[in-house]
């Protein structure tokens, strides 16, 4: 009985050690550090093995694109406000539908622009990393499911008509 318990104890300890080792070696410390800080650019640099030159070029592209993004954002908001004011004023359904169509058009334009930008970013990475990057981000752009970013505290209720 003594040896049975001792042997079981030894095996349980070895299993715990093995589990912890496998956990440790399967983790990605750089990615977890970036996630803790919420720093997406640090994630890009570490997860896609960017050297300083690649990282600087991608950051420049990112900063440039942010201006385009703000302009798109402003236009979408304007179109949304216009549709709301039309609806509040009891405008004809055709006018409201036209405003909705305008919003959808702007959203499509913005999705296309974003996709082009992401492909430009991918082109600055190594081919393999670029492919992996696109396979991670493009589906989320297409399905627009990144709006539920955990750190953004967004209202998840649908805002589209």
């Amino acid at each position: 009985m003594r040896y049975l318990l001792a042997t079981l104890g030894l095996i349980v300890a070895a299993a715990l050690g093995t589990g912890l080792l496998c956990y440790h070696f399967s983790c990605e410390p750089a990615l977890h550090a970036a996630a803790r800080k919420g720093d997406a650019m640090e994630w890009l640099q570490t997860d896609f093995h960017l050297d300083d030159r690649q990282f600087a070029a991608i950051r420049r592209l990112h900063d440039d694109y942010c201006g385009t993004c703000e302009e798109h954002c402003r236009r979408i908001q304007e179109a949304t406000r216009l549709r709301k004011s039309l609806a509040d004023a009891g405008a004809k359904p055709e006018a409201i539908a036209a405003a909705s169509g305008q919003i959808e058009e702007l959203r499509a334009t913005c999705e296309t622009a974003l996709t082009v930008h992401l492909k430009q970013v991918a082109a600055l990475m190594s081919p393999e990393d670029g492919r992996r990057y696109l396979s991670l981000v493009l589906p989320k752009v297409a399905t627009f499911d990144h709006r539920a970013a955990p750190d953004l505290h967004l209202d998840h209720s649908p805002r589209n008509p």
């Binding site: 990615l31 997406a40 942010c66 913005c110 992401l118 981000v137 989320k140």
Partner: peptide, 20 residues
């Protein structure tokens, strides 16, 4: 963690998120 980072990254770039 990767999903959270992708969401943060794209939220930064996607006007649809910012408009929302």
């Amino acid at each position: 963690d990767r999903d959270a980072l992708i969401a943060t990254y794209l939220a930064d770039l996607d006007p649809r998120v910012q408009a929302a």
